[in-house]
């Protein structure tokens, strides 16, 4: 597991006097599911934005997919996928049109794209719904589709920002099956979540409190370290120390 795909050291983001992200350092390995946890306002989103090239770090260095986050933001963007908590699908476009749009945005050639669209539709078992408007789909389907759209260009890393908000446990479970299948193919998954049961599905977890990473290890090691029954207890122990409120 020595093949690092994200490597960050001393990454800091300051907004005026407020230090949103305070010297965080970590590595993410190729093909793993990396859980990025923390309470609201802990700095998860800011850290993730810096990794995606949306925000410029105040201090620190890092590479994502082998590119420097300071100077090679555009190259990073080509090699990552991103799914926001609001799914980012266009309601008035059909399933197929949504996939094709993002494929086009990532500069995929026509032939390559149409093969990929078929492949994704097949995997989702969406073939007969390919011409349905996204607005007519149930939430769980939209979520899976959003994930597929984020991986349409076969990126090395997919960033998922609280991808499972507002869906029922069964759908969440199915969604995680999809994530695991994608990771098994060698795609690295970087996911933020609020659900501690989901944290158990991750290979490794980092816990952010007040802009700093307070713990980073596999779920079982973390449970041991904090002498806890489950991830929920680990989270409570760490989050209790938080000074910041929302």
């Amino acid at each position: 597991m020595a093949d690092t795909i994200i490597s960050v050291s001393g990454l800091t983001k300051q907004f005026g006097a407020f230090v949103a992200v305070d010297h965080i350092s970590f590595d993410v390995y190729r093909g793993e599911i990396f859980g990025f946890l923390g309470a609201n306002g802990a700095g998860k989103t800011t850290a993730m934005r810096m990794l995606c090239g949306l925000s410029y770090p105040t201090a620190g260095t890092g590479t994502v997919a082998g590119f420097d986050i300071r100077s090679q933001g555009e190259l990073i963007k080509r090699n990552i996928g991103y799914m926001s908590q609001r799914f980012s699908l266009y309601d008035d476009l059909t399933v197929k049109e949504n996939i094709e749009l993002y494929g086009g945005i990532y500069g995929m050639a026509h032939k390559e794209l149409s093969e990929r669209v078929d492949e994704l539709l097949q995997r989702l078992q969406f073939i007969e719904h390919k011409d349905d408007l996204v607005s007519s789909l149930p939430l769980g389907w939209k979520q899976k589709l959003a994930f597929m759209v984020a991986t349409v260009h076969s990126p090395e890393i997919v960033f998922l920002d609280e991808p499972t908000g507002g869906v029922d446990p069964i759908t969440r479970r199915q969604f995680w099956d999809l994530i695991k299948a994608t990771a098994a193919e060698g795609t690295t998954i970087f996911v933020t979540t609020h659900y501690m049961d989901e944290a158990e599905f991750c290979d490794r977890i980092s816990m952010m409190v007040d802009g700093k990473i307070r713990a980073l290890d596999s779920p079982s090691n973390l449970r041991q370290q904090f002498n806890a029954q489950n991830m929920e207890q680990v989270f409570y122990r760490l989050a209790r120390e938080a000074q910041r409120t929302e």
Partner: peptide, 13 residues
């Protein structure tokens, strides 16, 4: 408002 702009900004377009 829809949040799609965020995704467009992460994309290379």
């Amino acid at each position: 408002e829809m949040g799609t702009m965020e995704t467009l900004l992460v994309s290379p377009i």
